[in-house]
């Protein structure tokens, strides 16, 4: 009888451990998923920062390596452009404003996306779109979003206070003539 009781106690303990272990595994699996997502977010943020570092150094080849070959860049109008399409624009900006740079005001990320609130600054040193330089220093804001897949940028969206920048360069915005 004593042996039987001991055996029952032993089986009961084994069942309890097994139940505990199952719950534990489920919790750990869920936790692992969350942690994997956190690691991915941190990795994507570092890649995006690297993108800006190469951009401010005008290292276009290094930038291209961070992008998927079919990257879609949504800039200004709603239609996407390719990396090759923006290369002349990047060169033009950093020629006209050699100290042009990006500073991060805020960074946050989720799943495959990274959001940046950015301050851009520079000095109007060389001609820009046929406008003569006036040495003006400018600073304006922007919001940019990266989408990553397999450590490459697949989509990029940007909106910037271009009007603010142009105004600081000395340009004027006038309303169109009223139709008579």
């Amino acid at each position: 009888m004593k042996t039987f009781k001991l055996l029952c106690g032993f089986i009961f303990c084994i069942i309890l451990i097994a139940m505990n272990s199952c719950q534990d595994k489920q919790t750990k699996d869920e936790l692992a998923k969350f942690k994997q997502a956190e690691t991915l977010k941190a990795n994507n943020i570092e890649l995006a920062k690297k993108f800006y570092k190469h951009l401010d150094a005008v290292q276009l080849d290094s930038m291209r390596l961070l992008c998927a070959p079919d990257i879609k860049i949504y800039y200004e109008s709603g239609d996407p452009v390719s990396f090759s399409d923006i290369e002349p624009l990047v060169r033009m900006f950093y020629t006209s404003f050699p100290d042009y740079k990006h500073e991060f005001d805020e960074i946050f990320a989720t799943d495959d996306k990274v959001v940046f609130r950015i301050s851009y600054s520079g000095t109007f040193t060389n001609p820009f779109m046929e406008i003569n330089p006036n040495g003006a220093k400018f600073r304006y804001k922007g919001i940019q979003v990266f989408q990553f897949a397999n450590n490459k940028v697949t989509n990029f969206w940007a909106v910037e206070d271009e009007l603010g920048m142009m105004t600081q360069l000395g340009m004027e915005l006038k309303p169109a003539d009223k139709k008579k």
Partner: peptide, 22 residues
């Protein structure tokens, strides 16, 4: 048997608290 059970239980509680917070 009780000692590993308690150990399991403590680990589980810590993971569970972290998971709840996330």
């Amino acid at each position: 048997l009780l000692i590993p059970m308690l150990m399991f239980s403590c680990q589980d509680k810590q993971a569970l608290t972290e998971l709840k917070s996330l």
